[in-house]
Amino acid sequence: MPARPALQPGERVLVSTRAHGARLTRPFLVLLLTVFALSFAQRALELRWRPVAEPWTTVHAGVELALLAAAGWMVLRSCVRPLLRWWRTRYVLTTRHLVLLRPGGARRTVSLPLHQLRGVSVERRRSPALGRRDGRVVADFGSFGGLRLEHAPEAQRLAGLIRRAAEDEWAAGGAGRAGDPGSGGGAPGPRPTRVDRDAVVAPRPGPSVAPHRPWSRRVVQQEQE
């Protein structure tokens, strides 16, 4: 998977990061519990049942292999896969798009144009912060959908950078750039596909609703669908 999305002429990467390491807390706990459960089961098997004659010795060995296979499957599914997904998933902010890069290549990439940004916020965490500054950043792009960036590092700062980049894009006349979805010209840009838990579909506003940007006094007319 590329470290950054395909950029349009004149487009620059402003931020490229991945989720905070706190997202690996659950896989780590699953790993500890799996190792503990395997050790306990093996010890109990040795103490309770130690056959010395066939065919029970073969059955005993088969049970041990089954325990190892079950533990390996649990570690692979609940620990290794989330670790690889975390490592290969990146949150990228460019001068024109907010992009979610995920394993699977371009078909799994979600790229939304900043000139359609309606609002961005940081949702309050349910658990204690414990000194961490990560959080869930939710960016609403109106009829284009939205992104939910889980455990985004420096969440408040990232949200501010997204707002600033959107304002700069509008100041540069980004609504009419060729190649952006909805611009009315050029080749279509990347569109959100196979949206899952990292992305949310925002409510579709009515065609006459004008999105208001709370961080500025500008009111941008919503493009007719």
Rank of each mutant, 00 (worst) to 15 (best):
R197N: 11
F141G: 13
A61C: 02
P207E: 06
R148G: 14
L130G: 04
W56S: 07
A159Y: 00
V99H: 04
R164P: 00
T17A: 09
A152F: 02
R191I: 06
V195R: 13
G185T: 14
P113G: 02
P207I: 01
R43A: 12
T89P: 06
Q221K: 09
P82T: 08
V200H: 08
R124K: 11
L7C: 10
T17M: 08
Q156C: 06
A202Y: 03
V138S: 12
R96M: 08
L149Y: 03
E169Q: 11
R23W: 13
H115V: 11
F144P: 01
E225T: 05
E46V: 03
V35F: 10
F36V: 15
V13Y: 01
H151P: 02
E64T: 06
P55I: 07
R136A: 13
C79T: 13
G145E: 11
G72F: 10
G176K: 05
S39R: 06
H115S: 15
G142C: 09
R90A: 08
P51W: 01
P113F: 01
E225L: 07
L114M: 07
L149V: 09
V219E: 15
V138H: 07
V59A: 15
S208M: 08
S121N: 00
R118P: 00
L31K: 05
R194Y: 11
L149Q: 03
P9E: 14
A210L: 00
V99A: 01
G160E: 13
D140L: 06
A69V: 14
E64A: 12
G72K: 04
W215R: 02
G182S: 01
A66W: 02
L161T: 07
G104F: 01
A210I: 00
A139T: 06
P55M: 04
